[in-house]
Amino acid sequence: MQKPSVLIVGAGIAGIACAQALHRAGVSARVIDRGHKPGGRMASRTVNGRTVDLGAAYFTAEPGSGFADVVAGWVGHELARPWTDTIAVAGPDGIQRSSTGPMRYAAPGGLRGLVVDLARGIDVEQGVTVEQVAAGEVDGQRYDTVVLAMPDPQARRLLDAASTLREKLDDGSGWGPSIAIVLEWASREWAPFHAAFVNDSPDLSSLADDGDRRGDAAPVLVAHTSAALALKHLDDPDGAIVPVVDAVRRLLSLKDAPVQSFAYRWTFARPTAQHAEPFLLDDGIAVCGDAWGERSSVATAWASGDALGQAIAAR
């Protein structure tokens, strides 16, 4: 008998976690992705000769969870490290207080490297574009199951117009955009902080000290814009740099402007509402990701992909 085959579209952490779960169960799985490297929204880019995290700022792991075991492996191999349990809370004019919560983990080599590590032993092909997905079929090629490991709006666009699954997926109105702005100074001029949530700002939603989280003390900050500012500049991400620079300098009371900057657009940065189920699986098509679970996070994305892989294998 022919072995069951699964095609996973999307090489972010959800897609790779799904592939690993299938691999453990002895089910053949292939991962394809239109990007150049695995990672998805755990993206890292080389900016001015240095790796910078542009997507997720960090990740957490619930003690005793399957993802905690994965994280322990990363920490043991020095791919990840405990970063901080304290996050600043800021307003438009400065940091107001700090909030203590679960340990946040960072990756000295960039978060993308963690997905690459998780993908070891998996058949992953990059630079592949998919046009249309029907039940058990991708661009005319048959599979037992097709997994769309991506944001709802992107998955919905790939589905055949007659698919009943389309109505179970968000059309994009429930997802917020963001633009990541990398800002490099000549030297570290700000008071120490790890990362900050920014409230009531028309331009900023969060700010992270990338030199602090990477552990190399580089004078680099990564800001994520508000959804409102991102919407204004989706076609021109660089247009968001000036208002973000002004907002960051005001927030941290910085005298000098950054010496270099870089903008990266996330059209579907995060869901504004979550699916109650851990994944969608019906009629030979499945969807998983960080929108499938209690809250949007790296841990949720991994858990969604892992649970889906186990469910497909059980079939």
Rank of each mutant, 00 (worst) to 15 (best):
101 G>D: 02
181 I>M: 06
93 D>T: 13
157 R>W: 05
195 A>I: 11
186 A>G: 06
156 R>N: 10
288 C>Y: 05
170 D>Q: 09
252 L>G: 01
162 A>T: 12
18 C>F: 05
207 L>W: 03
292 W>N: 13
265 R>D: 13
54 L>E: 00
106 A>D: 00
292 W>Q: 10
262 F>W: 12
132 Q>C: 12
232 K>R: 15
297 S>W: 06
302 W>K: 04
253 S>N: 08
303 A>D: 09
159 L>K: 03
82 P>N: 12
312 I>M: 08
231 L>I: 09
200 D>W: 11
282 D>L: 13
130 V>W: 04
19 A>E: 00
155 A>R: 00
205 S>Y: 06
192 P>D: 10
274 Q>A: 15
287 V>D: 08
272 T>C: 09
268 F>R: 03
298 V>L: 10
27 V>R: 01
261 S>E: 10
223 A>E: 04
14 A>V: 02
154 Q>W: 10
89 V>N: 00
237 P>T: 15
27 V>Q: 01
187 S>R: 13
257 A>W: 11
18 C>H: 00
266 W>F: 15
22 L>E: 00
262 F>E: 14
163 S>Q: 03
13 I>G: 01
292 W>I: 05
187 S>L: 07
76 G>L: 13
204 L>Y: 01
23 H>K: 12
185 W>A: 05
195 A>G: 07
5 S>Q: 07
143 Y>A: 15
54 L>P: 02
2 Q>P: 14
104 R>D: 01
135 A>Q: 06
134 A>R: 10
259 V>N: 01
100 T>Q: 07
114 L>R: 04
178 S>W: 04
308 L>Q: 03
109 G>V: 12
116 V>R: 11
155 A>K: 00
109 G>Y: 09
130 V>F: 09
186 A>I: 06
176 G>F: 07
156 R>H: 08
139 D>E: 14
225 T>P: 05
114 L>I: 08
264 Y>P: 04
18 C>R: 00
295 R>K: 10
96 Q>W: 09
214 R>K: 09
64 G>R: 13
195 A>F: 05
22 L>P: 00
234 L>D: 00
59 F>K: 01
47 V>E: 12
271 P>H: 07
160 D>I: 15
176 G>R: 12
82 P>Y: 13
154 Q>C: 14
7 L>W: 03
84 T>V: 07
113 G>K: 14
115 V>D: 01
146 V>I: 07
277 E>H: 09
61 A>G: 06
4 P>Y: 07
52 V>T: 06
257 A>H: 10
289 G>Q: 08
124 V>R: 11
311 A>Y: 06
14 A>C: 05
12 G>Y: 02
101 G>R: 07
225 T>G: 03
248 V>E: 01
238 D>Q: 11
159 L>A: 11
9 V>Q: 05
68 A>T: 05
242 V>G: 02
115 V>A: 06
65 S>K: 11
199 N>R: 14
